[in-house]
Amino acid sequence: MYHMALPLIVLTFGSLASIMRYTRSSMLEVIRQDYIRTARAKGLREKVVIYKHALRNAMIPIVTIFGMSLPGLFSGAMITEQLFNWPGIGPISLIAVNNRDFMLLMGINMFLAVLTLLGNLIADVSYALVDPRIRLK
């Protein structure tokens, strides 16, 4: 755990900014809607208004980004893992490239492809979870 701290910070900060901006812009869109005013008028606490009424409706772009970042967490960590000497999938694929180990490379690509599909599937399912009006058949 102790050794995880630094690479974790690097990887987190990388995607933090963009997720924050997406959240901000879609929150701004939602926060002026009538139902937020209704929720405030009902006398709900600000915390409930923000997290339960507003954030939930602003979640859709964020869910998409999360789904897409799932494979990025593995492939994008290549340089970070190399720098911090973390024996993960990054250094392994780098060694495979250098040694022309095509089988391993194909395996890793396959793994990433599956992760991409999985991430997109999770995002699709979460749409319906976040916004019950969406009907995916």
């Binding site: 859709i60 772009p61 869910v63 998409t64 980004i65 789904g67 897409m68 997109n120 995002a123 749409y127 916004d131 009006r133 969406i134 009907r135 995916l136």
Partner: peptide, 17 residues
């Protein structure tokens, strides 16, 4: 690809409004 998914997700929700 990324932008396409992003837009599609939002439109899925918007079109039911």
């Amino acid at each position: 690809g990324g932008l396409c998914r992003l837009i599609r997700g939002q439109i899925l929700s918007l079109k039911e409004q």
